[in-house]
C-alpha cells in the first residue's frame, strides 16, 4: 500500500511539473467546450428534450466531458507499449512489482491531478456562462466514486491495447481503432442520449460508456437507488474484467517475449 502511494505521488508529479502545458490544455478544453455547447444548444431551438436530456443537462454534459477528458484519458496512451518495444519491459518484469499494479497506481496519482487542474477550471467557466445542473450531495459523492471507477476502467482498457505490443511490432493501428471506439462509444464526442436507439444499446453493452457517459449521468442524477448501485457495479465489473484480461495478456506476452540485444 505504501508502495502504491509512492508510485501514485510520482504519477501526480510527472504532470504537475509542466504548469504551462496544464494552462494551455485548460484553455483548449474551454474553447472546445464553448463550441460544442453552442452547437448542441442549437438543437434545443427545435425541441425541448433529447431523450432524458434537456438543454441544461446537455450543457452540463459538454462541460463535464471537457473537464474529464484528461482525467479518464480517452486519447492515445502508449507508455507500456513503448516499454515493450524497446525492451525496458524486461527490467519491469524482473522487479518484485507487477507492471499492471505499477501503472494502475501511477494512473490513480495522475487522474486526481488532471481532475483538479484540467477539470475544475473549464467546468467553472462553463458554469459561469451557462445554466448547468448541480448534483445533490449524494449525487456528488456517487459521481466521485464513478469517476474513480471510470479511471480504472480506462486504465484497464489502455493496458490491454498496449499489451498488443507483445505480439505486434507497431501498435499504432490497434491504438487508433481503440481510441476511435473509445471516443465515440464513451459519449465523449456526443452524449449517448443523442444516439439512435440501436447504437445506444451497443454503446451501453460495451465498457466504453463506463468511461465517460456513466459518471456524467450520475452527476446529472439520471440514476437513483438500485439503478445507481447497478451502474456503479457495472463499472466495477468492467474494471475487473478489463484488468483481468490485461493480466492474461501480460502473462501470455511475457512468456513469448524476446528482448534483442543488451
Amino acid at each position: 500500500m505504501r508502495l502504491d502511494w509512492e508510485i501514485a505521488k510520482r504519477g501526480w508529479r510527472r504532470y504537475a511539473a509542466y504548469p504551462w502545458a496544464t494552462a494551455a490544455g485548460v484553455f483548449t478544453n474551454t474553447i472546445f467546450g464553448f463550441l460544442q455547447a453552442y452547437i448542441l444548444l442549437a438543437v434545443f431551438r427545435h425541441r425541448s428534450h433529447v431523450g432524458s436530456y434537456d438543454a441544461a443537462d446537455t450543457v452540463t454534459y459538454v462541460w463535464l466531458a471537457q473537464a474529464l477528458i484528461m482525467t479518464v484519458y480517452v486519447f492515445g496512451w502508449q507508455e507500456l507499449a513503448l516499454r515493450i518495444r524497446d525492451g525496458a519491459i524486461a527490467t519491469d518484469l524482473s522487479r518484485p512489482l507487477d507492471p499492471q499494479r505499477y501503472w494502475l497506481a501511477f494512473d490513480l496519482g495522475r487522474a486526481p491531478y488532471h481532475l483538479l487542474f484540467r477539470g475544475v477550471l473549464p467546468f467553472a467557466v462553463g458554469a459561469l456562462v451557462f445554466r448547468v445542473h448541480y448534483p445533490s450531495p449524494l449525487e456528488a459523492l456517487a459521481f466521485a466514486g464513478s469517476v474513480a471507477l471510470a479511471v480504472v476502467v480506462s486504465l484497464g482498457f489502455r493496458f490491454l491495447y498496449n499489451a498488443a505490443a507483445f505480439w505486434l511490432l507497431d501498435i499504432r493501428g490497434v491504438m487508433t481503432v481503440a481510441i476511435t471506439l473509445n471516443l465515440f462509444l464513451s459519449g465523449m464526442v456526443m452524449p449517448l442520449t443523442f444516439f439512435p436507439g440501436w447504437l445506444r444499446s451497443i454503446a451501453h453493452a460495451l465498457p466504453f460508456a463506463s468511461i465517460l457517459q456513466t459518471p456524467v449521468d450520475v452527476w446529472l442524477g439520471k440514476h437513483h437507488g438500485a439503478d445507481l448501485a447497478g451502474v456503479l457495479a457495472l463499472q466495477a465489473l468492467w474494471a475487473v474484467v478489463l484488468l483481468g484480461l490485461g493480466r492474461l495478456a501480460l502473462r501470455g506476452g511475457a512468456r513469448r517475449l524476446v528482448v534483442q540485444g543488451g
Binding site: 509542466y18 504548469p19 494552462a23 494551455a24 483548449t28 474553447i31 472546445f32
Partner: peptide
C-alpha cells in the same frame, strides 16, 4: 514556452 503546444490546438 515549449509547454504551451496545446494552446495552439484550440485554434
Amino acid at each position: 514556452t515549449t509547454d504551451g503546444g496545446e494552446f495552439t490546438n484550440a485554434f
